[in-house]
């Protein structure tokens, strides 16, 4: 971990009770869901992390508590630092307060996470799906959503697949 990152991490840990994990020189801070907006605001205003590089999530199915991690990847242009903030979310209540007013980019990124994982961002200004059609059922990047793999057609299963495959009208 970068020397200059240590005071920042300590500050967040004291104010928001975060825990720290490290891997390959990267710092991962775990923050509780209700405190995330405060933590992000502090990091943006006081510690100059003005760029939210990525906002995504990860699904640890079949584990249910916490089933998801919402991941905020922050960069500081001024100080040239990076920091990852992770928020564990339970399956029973997949809700995180929105960060769309802290970082404007979070608006679209949160819509994407909602679309792909079904994690609801409370207070989001525009809670629609972004990538999938509006009438999709389910959330594709969850681990229990099937890949939708289609069997390639070989001679031995030629007829079988031919029957199922839809064809358009002329």
């Amino acid at each position: 971990m970068d020397k200059r990152l240590e005071p920042i991490v300590k500050d967040v840990q004291e104010k928001f009770g975060a825990t720290l994990a490290e891997f390959r020189e990267e710092a991962h801070l775990f923050v509780a869901a209700e405190k995330i907006v405060g933590a992000l605001t502090l990091l943006r205003d006081t510690h100059k992390f003005e760029l939210l590089s990525a906002l995504t999530a990860s699904d640890y199915y079949p584990q249910t508590t916490p089933r998801f991690h919402v991941i905020y990847q922050l960069s500081s242009v001024e100080k040239n630092l990076t920091l990852q903030v992770r928020v564990p979310v339970n399956e029973a209540n997949p809700q995180v307060p929105t960060a769309a007013h802290v970082y404007k980019v979070a608006n679209w990124r949160e819509r994407e996470v909602f679309d792909m994982f079904g994690i609801v961002f409370e207070g989001h200004p525009d809670p629609r799906r972004i990538l999938m059609p509006e009438d999709t059922v389910g959330h594709p990047l969850r681990k229990d959503y099937p890949l939708g793999y289609e069997e390639p057609q070989f001679t031995f299963n030629f007829d079988e697949i031919r029957v199922v495959k839809p064809a358009p009208k002329e």
């Binding site: 999938m132 939708g148 289609e150 495959k165 839809p166």
Partner: peptide, 19 residues
């Protein structure tokens, strides 16, 4: 035929949609 993307998001060949 769908190419490398054999998944939920892509039509496995546009011949499912247009002739």
């Amino acid at each position: 035929c769908g190419g490398v993307f054999n998944n939920y998001a892509i039509f496995q060949g546009v011949d499912e949609v247009v002739p």
